[in-house]
C-alpha cells in the first residue's frame, strides 16, 4: 500500500458515495446511465469472486464488500426504487458492443487460462470502458448536473491515481501487471475530454455544458 493507491481507493469510494447521496437526497437518478451502473456491478461481481477463496487483509475485504454492495444497491435504486426518474430515453448505448469484445479479449489476452483469472481479466477490460454509456448520455443531453460531474471526476481520478501507484510499484517493488496497466491507461484516457471540461467549467462554478 502506498499513498497513490490509497488516494485512488479513497477517490473511488468517494465517487460511489457521491452517486448514492445524489440519488438518495434528490430521490432521483436523472442524468445517470443505468447501463454504466449495470456494467460496474458486473465488473465488481466478476472481479471479487476471490472474496470466497482468499483473504488479503481486512481493508481489502471491507472495500470489496462495500463496492459489491453499493454497485448492486445503485442498480436496485435505478431500476426498481426510483425507476420513474430514470432517464432511459437518453441511455441508449448498446452495452453488448462493450461486453462481447471485452469477453473475447479476456479469453485471448490473459495471464492464465483459468476461470478465476479470465473473470478477473474480463472485469479489468470491462471496467476500462464501462463509463462509455454514461459519457455518451452526457454528450447526448449536452449537459450534466454538478453533482454528476463531481461523481465522474472522482471516478476518473481513481484510475489516474492507480497509474501513479503502478509506476511507484514498478520502481520500488519491481511489480507490474501489464493487463491492469494498459486497461487503466485506456480507462483514464477516456476521461480526458471530461477532465478538461470539469476543470475549465465546473470548478469555475459553471454547469457542465458541452459546446453546441
Amino acid at each position: 500500500m502506498n499513498i497513490f493507491r490509497l488516494a485512488g481507493d479513497l477517490s473511488h469510494l468517494a465517487a460511489i458515495i457521491i452517486l448514492l447521496i445524489k440519488i438518495w437526497k434528490t430521490r432521483s437518478c436523472a442524468g445517470i446511465s443505468g447501463r454504466s451502473q449495470v456494467l460496474f456491478a458486473i465488473v465488481f461481481i466478476t472481479r471479487y469472486l476471490d472474496l470466497f477463496t482468499n483473504f488479503i487483509s481486512a481493508y481489502n475485504t471491507a472495500m470489496k464488500v462495500f463496492f459489491l454492495g453499493s454497485s448492486i444497491g445503485t442498480v436496485y435504486l435505478m431500476y426498481l426504487k426510483f425507476k420513474a426518474t430514470y432517464d432511459h430515453n437518453h441511455d441508449t448505448f448498446r452495452i453488448e458492443f462493450l461486453l462481447l469484445p471485452t469477453a473475447l479479449l479476456s479469453l485471448v489476452l490473459n495471464h492464465e487460462f483459468s476461470v478465476m483469472e479470465i473473470l478477473w481479466t474480463f472485469s479489468i477490460y470491462l471496467e476500462s470502458v464501462a463509463i462509455l454509456p454514461q459519457l455518451f448520455m452526457v454528450s447526448k443531453t449536452g449537459e450534466a448536473e454538478s453533482i454528476t460531474s463531481h461523481y465522474l471526476f472522482a471516478l476518473g481520478s481513481y484510475r489516474g491515481l492507480y497509474i501513479l501507484n503502478w509506476i511507484y510499484r514498478y520502481y520500488f517493488e519491481g511489480f507490474y501487471d501489464i493487463i491492469a496497466i494498459v486497461a487503466g491507461c485506456v480507462q483514464t484516457i477516456l476521461y480526458c475530454d471530461f477532465f478538461y471540461l470539469y476543470i475549465t467549467k465546473v470548478l469555475k462554478g459553471k454547469k457542465l455544458q458541452l459546446p453546441a
Binding site: 482468499n54 481489502n60 492507480y162 491492469a180
Partner: peptide
C-alpha cells in the same frame, strides 16, 4: 504466486 497475491489491488 497465487491469484490473490497477483491481484491484491481493488
Amino acid at each position: 504466486k497465487s491469484f490473490s497475491q497477483e491481484h491484491d489491488e481493488l
